[in-house]
């Protein structure tokens, strides 16, 4: 049981309340606590594990389709891509020598549907997705949301890559403080 007491009003308390409120307002007028950033002139440097756009590393992918199965928003489509050179038929004991697969399956993400949950990144048995912290992207046309397979092999370019990068630091007085980061890496 922890019944709290509601503060009751008195004439004195009322005057004091008004003065307190105004004084506190004035305190912040003189010394404002700003948490906003002047984007895109300044942009936040996000932590390494930020769930941003990612790309596929073709050599690592084994085409298992697990990422497609687990994607909650069905943003992943498995593409059937022709394999350049077909391996030589095996001269084995099997009667009809089967040629190697003519197609390989590779995932492509529709960025318009992706919710960046990273289920696909976490489910991939070979770590074939390379994550990045790029997140601030916009497109002119709806079709641009769907990269081609080649487009999905490289990371998109961040529009704020030339902005001044700042790092958000927790601060006891200001909540969040932005510290400048050494210009470029």
């Amino acid at each position: 049981m922890s019944d709290q007491k509601t503060p009751r009003k008195s004439a004195f308390g009322e005057v004091k309340g008004h003065i307190d409120a105004l004084a506190t307002g004035f305190k912040y007028f003189v010394d404002p606590h700003r948490m906003t950033l002047d984007y895109p002139a300044e942009a936040m440097e996000l932590p390494k594990n930020y769930r941003g756009f990612f790309r596929l590393v073709d050599e690592k992918c084994i085409g298992c389709s697990l990422c497609e199965i687990v994607c909650p928003s069905n943003a992943i489509v498995m593409m059937q891509l022709p394999v350049a050179q077909s391996p030589a038929p095996q001269a084995g004991a099997q009667a009809p020598a089967r040629p190697g697969p003519k197609v390989k399956k590779r995932p492509v993400v529709d960025w318009g549907m992706c919710i960046f949950c990273y289920f696909c990144v976490d489910v991939c048995p070979t770590e074939a997705f390379e994550p990045s912290s790029i997140h601030d992207l916009s497109y002119f046309e709806e079709s641009e949301y769907r990269p081609t397979f080649e487009g999905f092999l490289k990371l998109p370019e961040s529009p704020s890559k030339n902005s001044k990068k700042v790092v958000a630091k927790l601060d006891e007085k200001n909540g969040i403080k932005y510290e400048e980061k050494g210009d470029k890496e």
């Binding site: 503060p7 009003k9 309340g17 307190d20 409120a21």
Partner: peptide, 8 residues
Amino acid sequence: KVWINNPV
């Protein structure tokens, strides 16, 4: 000061 005990 600004909100909770504010007489308004």
